[in-house]
Simulated scan of single mutants.
Amino acid sequence: MANPSKIIEGSVVYSLGEFDGKKVEYDFAKVAMYLEAKGQLIFGKHFKIYEEDKGVLLKLCNYIVRDYENCAKYGIDPHKGILLTGPVGCGKTSLMRLIRYIVPHRRPYELIPSRNVAFGFNHIGFKIIEDYGNGHFYCFDDLGVEPLGRHFGKDCNVMGEIILSRYDLFLKSKIPTHATTNLNAEELEERYGKRVRSRMRQMFNLIAFDKNTKDKRN
């Protein structure tokens, strides 16, 4: 059996914890070290895991490895998806791109910019809502700042409709949806309406960066 506690990047072997043949006992310090190294491979040598973000990262890691005990401690439901919120440039997208790599033995989710989905609607119409309401695993990036969709003169709040489709999928098949957003709960409700906001509460675990987190892109 392959050892899921060891990940090879090039010629370097990273240990994420101890594997007893049945389950991995993850070591968060080792996981953070691996994610920083993987982040530098993907985003460039400037990438780093900031000390002030480790609380958010710890919750995300416990979720992605399905540590049920720690998930319960942090009020996270491992069967729901993640809604990662925080100010512009705080690193939401980078972390959601990275944490997938901790569990290469599991089916990964695809990161999709929400604005691309709205632009897709403009080209192919309502079929795009069907396409994203399927059984694939997605993380919709920058939820809430995408434009309204318009196809042959018909306006559509595309991501709102997709969230409703994904909610039905979650109820039927327990397939989670993830998202990142700069918006708070009130802004999301204003953007998508009460019905969608209510569904989001049932679909997502809310994990939030501190509102004063600095913009790491500067």
Rank of each mutant, 00 (worst) to 15 (best):
P108F: 10
K23W: 06
F126T: 09
G86R: 03
A32D: 14
G135N: 08
K154P: 05
I99V: 15
I64V: 11
G55P: 02
I76H: 05
H46S: 12
N182P: 11
E190I: 12
G86Y: 03
L143G: 01
E187Q: 07
D67C: 02
R150G: 08
H105I: 05
P147D: 03
D131H: 11
I8F: 13
E146K: 01
R197C: 03
L60M: 01
L143P: 00
K59A: 01
G120L: 01
I8T: 05
A29L: 15
Y68G: 09
I8E: 15
Y167E: 09
E25T: 09
R197Y: 06
D155K: 15
K92R: 04
N70E: 08
V145L: 05
L16C: 07
E187M: 06
I175L: 10
R217H: 06
D20L: 06
G44L: 03
S11P: 12
E187N: 04
F140H: 14
Q40Y: 01
D215H: 05
G39K: 02
K59G: 01
V158G: 05
V13S: 13
F140T: 01
L16F: 08
I129S: 15
G153N: 00
M96R: 05
K194R: 12
G149W: 04
F204G: 01
L183I: 10
A37P: 10
R150K: 09
N218T: 09
G91P: 00
K172E: 13
E9K: 13
G89F: 02
S173H: 13
D67L: 02
N134W: 01
N218F: 15
F126W: 15
L16M: 11
E186M: 06
S114Q: 00
V65H: 04
E9V: 13
R97C: 11
V145Q: 02
N205S: 07
A32I: 11
E25L: 15
F43L: 07
G17V: 05
K59F: 00
R106D: 14
E18F: 13
L183N: 08
P87A: 07
I76N: 03
E186N: 09
P4T: 09
Y132L: 06
H136R: 15
G135R: 09
E189R: 10
E189V: 04
Y132F: 07
P176Q: 15
G120W: 00
A72N: 00
L143C: 02
G75K: 03
G144H: 00
E18G: 10
G44Y: 12
Y101I: 06
P104A: 08
A208R: 03
D53A: 03
L83R: 04
K211V: 13
G44P: 03
S94F: 08
E130H: 11
M96G: 07
E110C: 11
C156D: 09
E146L: 00
M200P: 00
E51L: 14
H105E: 11
F121H: 06
K172H: 05
K73G: 14
Y101G: 08
R97T: 15
D141E: 04
V31Q: 14
G10S: 12
Y63T: 10
L111D: 11
D142W: 14
E9F: 08
K30A: 13
G86T: 14
R107W: 13
N184I: 02
G75M: 12
D20P: 09
S173F: 06
N212H: 08
D142H: 04
R106T: 10
F19M: 07
H105T: 14
V12G: 10
N212A: 10
L35K: 15
E25C: 13
P113C: 07
R100C: 06
Y192W: 07
Y26R: 00
G193W: 01
S114V: 03
